[in-house]
Design a protein around this nucleic acid. Structure first.
Lengths: 346, 346
DNA sequence: TGTCAACACGAAAACGTTTTCGCTATGAAT
DNA sequence: ATTCATAGCGAAAACGTTTTCGTGTTGACA
């Protein structure tokens, strides 16, 4: 087992100084051709690589990005990470992951763990609990210490930083408009409680679409589900809620759901009730994931383009990190959504 | 913007030495009650936290685990990460992610990026291309340099290190036996090419189950699909392949697929051909993901318990890192699979 | 008064780099 | 012969810690 070799060891071995070795390896003109070759050959032989930690300490930058997300077993978030990793790697950065698990405390702890010099900046999506408690001091403190943050998807206006979002309102408005233009007269929405910003916005898009078609919203057709974090028994009760929705409103002929799972479950319930998709009832979901694509019938969805969001966020952060003018100008990038039409709509 | 404060700054501010500050913060008995309180108060006021990079350099350990996986937009792998993160965090470690994207080169580059001091050890699952080329020098070198590796799922016997696997053979043998005991007479398997070790093992399990039931394997019923990495047009051709399988073998009444997607697609094809599930034909997949649970009919699967695998791998690695006896004894942990019966089987 | 332990603190090394500055020897130019 | 530029290299500082060792002051005790 030959341990990693250091400059000091090379220096001792070749009977030169550490500085000489360092310079020789970086092709400095100060060093004679002779010694340069000697050093480089030796270094190659022993497979020398500069110690990253030492470099980080010296340069006061780690070339590492911290990413905090609510969960990773989730198509959207893993897509985003995939995008982050892509541009980060291309630009010589590493990605270090923290999971908040939708918990405020874990979010804070994770950020503290990373903010002590381990990373150069954050990319994050806010935990639900944090959104509920509306306690954002940890973000403010981090930014105050000079560590840049890029937020994506679940953001909050109160915090002043770079952001990458989609136009939730427009995306859902489009989707609902599509249902209406496809002939649906009674479109229901399955959404989340309002504290989830995206849920709220998507509900608003629904309402605006109705308005554009001069339809008065019917509160009976708006189902606000308690939580997105779905355990197995929550699933059961969700099914019953949706079943109730359909039973009490026999005229429903279109459903817009603010996420993929709600839409899939609603389709299942509808089919069990004997409705034909898309003839009797049409469905559109939000967030294009593996479920939408492979469901039967395949589900039309509003794609969030998670990978692009990740790429944009990473670009924003790294550009910021490598920009030397100190002038802070925060930008918000809006990624366009895309309505992917499949077999759950006509 | 108040930047992070250092020991040196505290020392200067309070007119004591750096050593005194350091000791005071760590409650050393060398320091008088007076100065201790003064220093601690000051540190708290300025929210002092030791710089992680400096600590890493000094201690020659980073308390960070490097994870290299083929892709992250994948239920199984994200589950594993989730498990790794859980125990890593609990034990004060961070997790840094590298994606090989199934490419040999990216695997090597990623490992080099991390092996230069950024991490204390690796947890990884081998890229397909690496398995094909059978070039494992980067693993050997890493281990030789004293950096421990834990492999999970896609392993290779040639490399001597800790491993976490499932009993692929047993898992698939169980699944196929289940189909047979459910009355299936002609069970087909949809599998991958043999270079993917798990594909090979699962195929073998299939054969052993048949043997146990004294059934002679029919090569027509063994469909070896080219690649697991499925792009959209690959999907189409996969459907046609499976359709061919069914058309040419009308007697098939059971299907075992080595992953979830193959099973879902096969179910779809079968349904389109007018077969009733599970009456005419039964299905079991491998890898319990979101598709299996929410498909209609829901798919019976062999669960790999990804999260547990991640937890076990992290525990193995950290135990190794924190053990001081130098005696190397590699262990292989086998995580039990579980057959989850849903509606695609009787 | 002289000795010694205990106390409280500081200096410095070490981790592995990079970089600035200074030094010496060589040869050329005056 | 003296000056001077230059080539080639080394010493040391710096990044932020922790820890070992040394040192000065105090008070107690013989």
């Amino acid at each position: 087992m030959k341990k990693k070799i250091t400059l000091k060891q090379i220096a001792r071995e070749l009977d030169v100084s550490i500085s000489t070795v360092s310079k020789a390896l970086r092709d400095s003109i100060e060093i004679s051709e002779d010694t340069r070759q000697k050093v480089q050959a030796f270094a190659k032989l022993y497979n020398y690589r500069p110690n990253n930690i030492a470099l980080s300490l010296k340069n006061r930058k780690t070339k590492t990005i911290g990413v905090i997300i609510p969960e990773i077993v989730h198509h959207f978030f893993s897509k985003v990470i995939s995008g982050i990793e892509l541009v980060a790697n291309k630009r010589g950065y590493n990605v270090i992951i923290g999971l908040s698990n939708e918990s405020f405390d874990k979010e804070v702890i994770n950020m503290q763990m990373l903010a002590n010099g381990s990373i150069d900046g954050f990319i994050l999506s806010i935990a639900k609990e944090t959104l509920q408690q509306q306690d954002y001091h940890h973000f403010k403190e981090t930014i105050n210490q000079g560590m840049p943050i890029v937020m994506f998807d679940r953001i909050v206006n109160e915090i002043h930083c770079d952001k990458v979002i989609i136009d939730d309102l427009k995306g859902s408005k489009n989707a609902v408009s599509k249902l209406l233009s496809n002939g649906c007269k009674n479109v229901a929405i399955i959404t989340t409680k309002d504290y989830v910003s995206v849920g709220k916005l998507r509900t608003q898009g629904y309402l605006e679409a109705l308005e554009a078609y001069e339809i008065t919203p019917d509160t009976d057709l708006i189902l606000k589900v308690d939580d997105e974090l779905v355990s197995d028994d929550r699933l059961e009760s969700l099914e019953r809620e949706i079943e109730g929705l359909f039973q009490n409103n026999k005229n429903i002929d279109g459903v817009f759901a603010v996420n993929e799972l709600y839409a899939i479950i609603a389709m299942k319930v509808a089919r069990n009730l004997g409705m034909k998709i898309p003839d009797d009832i049409q469905f559109i979901g939000f967030t294009d994931g593996v479920l939408s694509k492979h469901a039967t019938p395949s589900l039309s969805t509003v794609s969030q383009h998670g990978q692009e969001m990740g790429e944009a966020a990473a670009k924003l952060l790294i550009d910021n990190l490598e920009r030397d003018d100190e002038e802070e100008r925060y930008t918000t990038i809006v990624i366009e959504t895309e309505l992917i039409e499949r077999n759950s709509t006509k």
